[in-house]
Amino acid sequence: MTVTFKKVVFCSLCLLILLVLSALSAIYFGPAKISPLEILSIFQQGFGGSTQGVIILSIRLPRIILAGLIGAALAAAGSIFQALLRNPLADPYILGISSGAAVGAISVILLGYAAGGWCIPLFSFIGALLTVLLVFYVARTREKIQTNTLLLAGVIVNSFFSAVIMLLLSISNGHDLQGILYWLMGDLGQADYGKLVLILPYILGGVGVLYLYTPKINLMLLGEDEAGQLGVEVETTKKILYLLASLITGAAVSVCGIIGFVGLIIPHIVRLIWGNDYRLLLPASFLLGGSFLIIADTIARTIISPVELPVGVITAVCGTPFFIYLLRTRKVL
């Protein structure tokens, strides 16, 4: 299957339409029954209206945009990690970013600064960045990064921080424990426009730059030596891929905790449908990941409304059967 620029544009357009459709239907669902006509007039009036207006514009809309952005970011980062580590099991969290971010977030919760709104995102982002640098430092041997060393370094750092998380959990009291557990499950309920603006540059900028590297990623998938002979600066490219994908993941995790499964499964779904060409795989994963998380989060917040489920539960429960179906019909990864 050859991938032309035309095909990339066409597939991306289709997925963009899917994204817009899922966002539009998501805005209709919620504990408050608001008809599509009312929603339309709310959009015309803008901010500062009735309770219904607040619900649509200040609760549902930022949450849907955030879900789309996070899902897109995680799926794109996951596809990059799968290429970088040449491992189908790779997801954005495999190199320990999530547990590093979690240590940052949990420390803030335990110190009692959790309520401010900004502290948890800030410290989990710092935790994620420190983890990225630590893994990078551990894995680097003579200016080169061996894929297996990187994977091993990531897994080791991950298990170290997981142990720190367990330690913090076991010395925390009941009140904090619940907040920590829910953070670990991932949550999109805290969406506001401030957070969107905060993470948007990291995610759009990161994915944008990564897209420029997709031809090189394609060559590197043939083998690093071959890519080197074809003029790709393999080591530099690997470092850039690693740092950008980590930055995107860190930004995503910092505002909504650890939402699993999206980053693992969406790239595989795209791969099963359209093949392994990253010029298409990256943008398609980005857009499909967005739609997927919007739909999953809509189910999570409405299925036993007004009580909410952790969105990670829905991503796994809905994603797995579809993935198994694809795997059984295509038989190849």
């Binding site: 919620g30 504990p31 408050a32 309770t51 607040v54 619900i55 609760i59 549902r60 619940q178 829910y182 949550d187 309920g189 917040r301 409304s305 007004p306 009580v307 909410e308 489920l309 952790p310």
Partner: peptide, 12 residues
């Protein structure tokens, strides 16, 4: 018990 709750319902 201690449920995770939807902000929308608090407004409503």
């Amino acid at each position: 018990g201690y449920p995770r709750y939807n902000l929308e319902d608090v407004l409503l």
